[in-house]
Design a binder for these strands. Structure first.
Lengths: 205, 205
DNA sequence: TCTCTAACATACCAGCCGGTATGTTGGCTT
DNA sequence: AAGCCAACATACCGGCTGGTATGTTAGAGA
């Protein structure tokens, strides 16, 4: 009947949802446990403080979400650059309007907490560094395989790409207009094409 | 001795500072008035609620800041595209590290408040729309004057440019590394060059 | 079966929050 | 010079917050 792992996960899930919708500060512990079948006693049994809950969200939920949404799918593409473009498009298509209006969970939490709490800052920074580094790997692969111009700097492009991926969500959240996302998609695509090797001058794999 | 306009402005200024540093939710009215020579009575004489204070910051402070930092300086450039690139660089150079770590005030407030309070959302959206529209004007001018390829969509590029301007600050805030800003600057420059008309006028760093 | 610890529930608290009610005072108006 | 109102100050409040102290109960081990 008792299942500590499930209990903890249910708190984490409810907390993520509520924080994603209303922000960390504006979400109280009472509201979080109210979304579950548990009470405050259970909450503080698993998380010694409210901030600890936030740390766990960064370490576990957000990190996993970034990998699952933005990184792992890239492995399926022969041309990683094409993969980045396709994923960006597919995420637009598959994200419900309600979520588009809420922005990127990682970015939301970072903007709210990183200048307030240094532990938050480090954990959220780690997630973003991971996101960039993994993107960089694929871009390097793309360059080595002749899909990108040989003079491109994979790290630099990776930082730009991730910034666009996050910034696009932020702007759509602000403007409440999904069409903007498509506009930004076109611009990112154009940028990536501008640093891509033309098929004719592509090196043979 | 009494000077209502100055008093109001001093509250607005102190509030903006404190909110910029610690976020809206985490800044209490007591802290704001504590930064001035006034008391809570004065605060609620000028702003009927704490949210009203936030609205005034959006309408007055943030709007003016966007125009002053990003838009008005563009008038001094013959090639608006060159102006956008130069301004982006100069803002990096002139912004102290401490402020770089705090991000863009407009973006901070938007990420924190726009999904919580609809009035906030509309006001902050108006500021961002203004930012984009004014940028669009200059890009259209650039296209008509042959600095940009004739097939570029000024609105689309404006949305992308503003997104990068905001997103760059957000990312630097996250990563706490000003070098990233230069990296993003290079990418933006490269993008704008890729949609620029080559023969007419050259873009230089 | 008895024990004992982890897994929860209940009840409560000090502190701070935004906001209000009620002063007091400066200074223009007549 | 008296009146009067905007411009402030002071004192206070109910409500909610994160957090704690103290239960109670499930269930694995002996």
């Amino acid at each position: 009947m008792r299942d500590p792992e499930r209990t903890r996960a249910s708190i984490l899930g409810a907390a993520f949802d509520e924080i994603y919708h209303r922000g960390f500060h504006d979400t109280s512990v009472n509201e979080i446990v109210g979304k579950t079948t548990l009470t405050k006693g259970a909450f503080f049994h698993y998380f010694s403080t409210k901030n600890d809950l936030g740390y766990a969200i960064a370490d576990e939920v957000l990190k996993e979400m970034v990998l699952e949404r933005w990184i792992r799918p890239l492995a399926a593409y022969k041309n990683p650059v094409q993969g980045i473009i396709s994923r960006f498009r597919k995420i637009i298509e598959s994200t419900p309007d309600e979520h588009m209006a809420l922005g990127c969970p990682l970015n939301n939490l970072t903007q709210e907490m990183s200048s307030v709490d240094p532990v938050f800052r480090e954990k959220l920074r780690a997630v973003m560094q991971l996101w960039i580094s993994e993107t960089e790997k694929y871009l390097k692969k793309a360059r080595d395989q002749g899909y990108l111009n040989p003079d491109v700097n994979p790290r630099q492009v990776a930082e730009f790409v991730v910034m666009v991926e996050e910034g696009a969500f932020a702007m759509v959240k602000n403007l409440r207009d999904k069409k903007v996302y498509w506009s930004l998609y076109e611009s990112l695509k154009r940028y990536l094409e501008s640093i891509s090797q033309k098929p004719t001058e592509q090196l043979s794999a």
